[in-house]
Simulated assay, not measured.
Amino acid sequence: MYEGAVQDLIDELGRLPGVGPKSAQRIAFFLLDADKDDVQRLSEAMIAIKEKVKHCRICGNVAEQDECAICRDARRDQSVICVVEESKDVMAIERTKSYRGLYHVLGGSINPIAGVGPDQLRIRELMTRLSDETVEEIVLATDPNLEGEATATYLARMLNTLGIKVTRLASGLPVGGDLEYADEVTLGRAFEGRTAVT
């Protein structure tokens, strides 16, 4: 246990996702030894994100304007919307350079244990976007875990009544992975999506 500002920083860093007590301590001492200008830039970047960044009024992605760059891009395929849980998922898909449609960020997934139901997600906003009948396909790209699967199933049932094509990202086992480490959902989806070997 350290005293004063050092312990306060370790405690605050420890509240960040994925940062345990030892990592928080390492980061705190890195910052303590870092150049003051570097720490100042980090501090300013953290304050700027809270002051400048908001959510796109159309898709819910992070943006510094009312609409994100993807929604403003007229070259994007307006007939397809990929539904994801979080903004970080948009960037993961964009890095593949294989999708040119639009996105809709739900802001999480259905998780009754955490008190998150469909009403806490941006599902109503998705339905509003579909009312102009220009969208022909919805790609469900929620996480392949229990909450993501529950969210995808809920959305698929709701969207199928609208006559819009609903697809789900293919999923399976990672290359180089071991079966013993695969979770039940991933392994089950791998079996369901199996193809013939020629």
Rank of each mutant, 00 (worst) to 15 (best):
L146T: 15
L32D: 09
A5C: 10
K36F: 08
G101H: 05
Q40S: 14
I49R: 12
V197A: 13
Y181V: 04
Q7S: 03
R157V: 12
V166I: 01
T161P: 09
G115S: 07
A92S: 12
I164G: 02
D38V: 15
G177L: 00
G115D: 04
L179P: 01
R194K: 10
R26Q: 01
L31G: 00
C68V: 04
M46F: 14
E136F: 12
A92I: 07
Q65F: 15
K22V: 03
R129G: 08
E67R: 13
I70Y: 11
I93Q: 00
P144M: 00
E192H: 13
C68M: 03
S109N: 11
E86D: 14
L173K: 10
Q7G: 05
T186A: 01
A170I: 00
A28F: 02
G176M: 00
I58K: 14
C71A: 03
G188Y: 06
L31K: 07
F29K: 02
S23R: 07
P21I: 01
E137I: 09
M158C: 14
K52G: 02
K88W: 13
A24M: 01
L102P: 02
D66C: 07
V53N: 06
V166P: 09
P144Y: 03
A190C: 01
I47A: 12
A74D: 14
E137Y: 01
Q65R: 15
L140S: 05
E192V: 10
Q40K: 14
E86I: 09
A196L: 13
C59W: 02
A24P: 09
G115I: 04
D37Y: 15
G115Q: 06
C59M: 04
K54C: 12
G176L: 09
E64G: 11
R95H: 12
C56S: 06
V197D: 12
L173N: 07
I10L: 07
R122D: 10
D143S: 15
D77H: 04
F29V: 07
A48D: 11
I113D: 03
R76N: 00
G101M: 07
G18I: 02
G115K: 04
R194A: 07
E147Q: 11
G193C: 11
L106F: 06
R57M: 12
D89T: 07
Y154E: 06
F29M: 01
L9F: 04
E3N: 15
R194I: 04
L126K: 00
T167I: 05
D33I: 11
A74W: 13
V185F: 11
C71D: 00
L13C: 06
P21H: 05
G148K: 08
Y154M: 00
A92V: 09
V39I: 10
T134I: 13
I123E: 08
S43Q: 10
T134W: 04
G101A: 01
A28Q: 01
K54A: 13
V105K: 01
E64R: 12
A190F: 05
A28W: 02
